[in-house]
Design a protein around this nucleic acid. Structure first.
Lengths: 352, 352
DNA sequence: CTGTTAGCGCATTCAA
DNA sequence: TTGAATGCGCTAACAG
């Protein structure tokens, strides 16, 4: 910058102004400065600027410890995608916070390494905000927004879908189709989505006067498990059941897809013998055999809204964003769901 | 930091040393300093440190303009995943470079906004390195590594899979199974992977003495297209063909899956009438009907290796990394491929 | 082993 | 409209 100033015959402060506040400098000198900058290949140093102004345009994304691409399928990746795009459109950059797995006990890497260069944070899914002293993200005034998971109780603005309500509606629909017994493929025990979705199932049963035991529960181990694997295991469990529920409900699509595939391979007819409901709305569900009915997680909308919420938080002038924004899930009704089969004893005749 | 120094009764430089080089300071004072830091909730300012030492621990990932989650499926997401993990394990953070779509003409946002705070860059897939003057990433000595796409010709160390060779091998296998006519579902025209993979197909035909026209080519528009959609369209095209090739080869799994699903829905038997080969190895392929044979892209290995390569580049002491690292694709042989059906005229009898 | 000093590159006072 | 001076928080010489 000093070189530019020298070449243009001005002071560094004028260069600074010419670049940042084009209005506050003479047009002729501005052009001279720009030419000099061009000639020298000058690129402003963001680190210095950040230090000086005490802020930056970098937002930190904190990801769940489970990977981006498994677990809840591509959900995290899709959200990340729109978060990054929205921030980028507003001149911000996204920093992926390292998972502090390696030196977990010692110091919280994301906390320390990026302090002072991060302007705000977005917690995606079950991401954990590193704890820490009063100047940690949580305590020290770093604006934080949560997406996918509701943390409004902790005072963190959250952008979520109402999984519980969505699941409730879908199960009521199954009940309307005559289903009275359910097989629930649980997600990881203790996880937010598992709680919400199984809660929605329970709600629907209660609302219909069905007992809790109308739903056989499977899986839900505490350790992380691959979704497809869970689905296969669940299928084996369902096949081994003496009295098989007529509807299977998976906490997430990966499990539903693997379940569907496995039970059909063993001779079960879907939806003839068994209806299958997934959750998340991954695109590939439309190409399953039969196509999978599922509840779409509005990932793009969630990501965009979360980014906008954080931006509003950063903008002192803007009104405070709501503590909780709820976006609707969307039922994608496909062929994996149908009316419950007639009970065997009563089954009269098959079509010829 | 000054506050900490004051509270501990030392100079700021001692605080700095106590935190950065624990060995070079008296144990007692070090403990006093740590206590003071703890009490004050002190968090070092990375921006200031970066400015002072003239470097940082932030690596920039440049993503392709097409999204993270479509196009080549989750490939980009999976690579990003391991890149982030590997860097994190080595104390680095990952900055997602914004796509300079909005102000494309004007100035290259990723170039300018993060200058001085980025230590190196990883180009993922078809990502474009922003052009620019001599101090731009390309010209100005910013260490760069490419992954998924070979840029070694431009002097950029690249970590890739040998798609061409893998495709060649798989097609030779199909030829060995008696297939003599192929239906190729092309990826986006002009894309690196499309060129490599269709090249592999051509290689195999040539090696077997088959004419180029043994492969009917479909799709490959210049505009970006959703993989599933391409697959559906390709299926319609195949179904409309008078003389249908006995093997379909898709440039990527999304298309293969949608193709498979659509032709079966229209009554074609896979692999009875038609064998289907995908590319990428997405996990869901194992649960297709029938399970999809595909060539796995070693995403995790690629990501890790790319990160390591960049790290080696940053480490002055380390030997220069190879300009090109090639990792093997893996054939995942599944039920979507079988021997070519006998020609209709000759078909003698069906099993009862 | 510790304190003093200087400066990384920039934005912003305050004068001129 | 411009220039000179100051300091953001930190690290690295160099003395002591």
């Amino acid at each position: 910058m000093r070189d530019v100033a020298r070449l243009a015959g001005v002071a560094t402060s004028t260069v600074s102004r010419a670049l940042a506040q084009p209005g506050r400098v003479n047009e002729a000198t501005r052009r001279r400065i720009l030419a000099a900058a061009e000639q020298l290949g000058y690129v402003p140093n963001a680190a210095a600027r950040n230090l000086r102004v005490g802020t930056s345009n970098i937002i930190m994304a904190v990801l769940p410890e489970t990977t981006i691409t498994y677990g809840t399928s591509q959900i995290v990746a899709e959200v990340l995608q729109t978060v990054a795009a929205t921030l980028s459109d507003n001149g911000f950059n996204l920093l992926i916070a390292g998972r502090s797995r390696s030196r977990a006990g010692e110091q919280h890497i994301p906390d320390l390494a990026v302090s002072g260069i991060v302007r705000g944070a977005i917690l995606i899914g079950s991401a954990e905000l590193p704890p820490g002293g009063r100047r940690s993200p949580a305590g020290g005034g770093l604006p934080v927004v949560s997406v996918l998971e509701d943390r409004s109780a902790a005072g963190i603005p959250s952008v979520i879908a109402d999984d519980r309500r969505a699941m409730r509606g879908a199960v009521l629909r199954l009940i309307g189709l005559g289903h009275r017994s359910f097989f629930y493929i649980a997600g990881p025990a203790g996880s937010y989505h598992e709680a919400e979705r199984s809660g929605g199932l329970a709600d629907a049963l209660a609302a219909s006067g069905l007992p809790e035991r109308a739903a056989v529960r499977h899986g839900g181990s505490h350790t992380f498990q691959d979704g497809f694997e869970s689905g296969v295991e669940a299928a084996r469990a369902w096949l081994a059941l003496e009295s098989r529920p007529t509807a299977a409900i998976a906490c997430w699509d990966d499990a539903a897809i693997a379940f569907l595939s496995t039970v059909r391979q063993q001779g079960a007819a879907v939806p003839g013998d068994l209806s299958v409901l997934g959750f998340d709305g991954v695109p590939v569900g439309a190409f399953c055999e039969p196509p999978l009915t599922t509840l779409r997680q509005p990932t793009a909308e969630l990501g965009a809204k979360a980014a906008e919420t954080l931006l509003a938080l950063l903008d002192g002038g803007a009104p405070a964003p709501p503590l909780r924004t709820t976006l609707p899930n969307q039922l994608l009704p496909r062929a994996s769901i149908a009316a419950a089969p007639k009970r065997r004893g009563r089954r009269t005749s098959r079509p010829p």
